[in-house]
Write a protein that binds this DNA or RNA. Structure first.
Length: 249
DNA sequence: AATCTCTTCAACCGCCTCCGG
DNA sequence: TCCGGAGGCGGTTGAAGAGAT
C-alpha cells in the first residue's frame, strides 16, 4: 500500500515542507512524482506531494469564493458530466478538482437536497439527490465538431451573416481568419444536444447543418484544437478532445 | 466562559487506467 | 499477453474553526 513506510509523514503540510516541494518542482518540473520526495528531501509519499502541489502550491490557483458564473457552470457541467470533478475543474481556470468537489459537497449538494425537498420542478437544472447522470448520444458526436460561442452562432443564423460559408454538404463555418472568439462548425444534432444540455432546454430552430470533418480546412481545425484558453462562461464552452473522450471511450 | 454542534476543506485511501518491460 | 509501477481520480475522513446554546 502507498505510504506504508513508518517514516512517511502524514497530515497537514508545514511551511517548510511547502517550500521544499516548491523548490523541487521549480527545479525539476512537474511529473515523475515518485522521484519528488527524494529530490525534495521530504518524508512524504509521491501522492501526497502531487496532491499538495496540484491543490495548493501550483501557481495561478484561484482561492476564495466562487463567482456566480462559476457556480452556474459547475451546476450545468455536473448535470452533464456527473461527478467528473477533474473535467469540471478543467473548465474553471484556477480551480482544482478538489475545490470543485468540496464546493459541490458543502454548498450545492445541500442546496440540491433542499430544493428537491421543497419542489420537484422538472425544469430545474438542479439534480435531485439520487439522479443518475445519463451519458448522452455518444456515438453521434463527431470528433471534429466544436461548440464555440453559441451567441455568435445564433446571431449568424438569424442575420444570414456573410462571415459564414456554406459548403455543398451544408456545413456552416464561421470565418475565423480575423479573431479567435467565435467560429464553429456544428452539426445540427450536436448543436441541439449541447444547447439543450447547457442552456436549460432552450429551443433550437430547425437549421439543418450537417458537418463533415472532410469539409473543414485542416488549418482551421489545428487552430481550434490548439486553443487552450477555455472560456469560463457558458457561451464559450469548448467541446474539446478531453470531453470527446468522455463520451467516446 | 464553557461546551456542544455544525461547517469547511485539506489530505488520505483505495481503485482504475495506462504504459513499459 | 501478463505484470508491476506510476499517475490520476473520486469518495471519504477528520482536524480546525465558527456559531449556537
Amino acid at each position: 500500500m502507498e505510504g506504508s513506510s513508518l517514516r512517511v509523514r502524514k497530515g497537514a503540510w508545514t511551511e517548510e515542507e511547502d517550500l521544499l516541494l516548491k523548490k523541487c518542482i521549480e527545479k525539476y518540473g512537474e511529473g515523475k512524482w515518485h522521484q519528488v520526495p527524494a529530490r525534495a528531501g521530504l518524508n512524504r509519499c509521491r501522492k501526497s506531494c502531487r496532491l499538495r502541489w496540484l491543490n495548493y502550491l501550483k501557481p495561478n490557483i484561484k482561492r476564495g469564493h466562487f463567482a456566480a458564473d462559476e457556480v452556474d457552470l459547475i451546476i450545468r457541467l455536473h448535470n452533464l458530466l456527473g461527478n467528473r470533478w477533474s473535467l469540471i475543474a478543467g473548465r474553471l481556470p484556477g480551480r482544482t478538482a478538489n475545490d470543485v468537489k468540496n464546493y459541490w459537497n458543502t454548498h450545492l449538494l445541500k442546496k440540491n437536497i433542499d430544493t428537491f425537498n421543497k419542489t420537484s420542478n422538472p425544469k430545474s437544472h438542479k439534480l435531485k439527490p439520487d439522479t443518475k447522470v445519463i451519458k448522452p448520444r455518444p456515438q453521434i458526436l463527431s470528433k471534429r465538431s466544436f461548440l464555440v460561442n453559441l451567441d455568435e452562432y445564433n446571431n449568424n443564423n438569424n442575420n444570414n451573416n456573410n462571415d459564414r460559408a456554406k459548403t455543398s454538404n451544408n456545413v456552416v463555418l464561421a470565418d475565423c481568419s480575423d479573431n479567435h472568439d467565435g467560429y464553429c462548425f456544428l452539426d445540427h444534432d450536436e448543436m441541439m444536444w449541447w444547447e439543450n444540455m447547457m442552456m436549460n432546454e432552450k429551443e433550437v430552430d430547425g437549421h439543418q447543418l450537417q458537418c463533415s470533418a472532410n469539409d473543414i480546412d485542416q488549418s482551421v481545425l489545428d487552430q481550434i484544437m490548439n486553443e487552450d484558453n477555455y472560456g469560463n462562461t457558458m457561451d464559450e464552452l469548448f467541446l474539446d478532445e478531453e470531453l470527446w473522450n468522455v463520451f467516446n471511450p
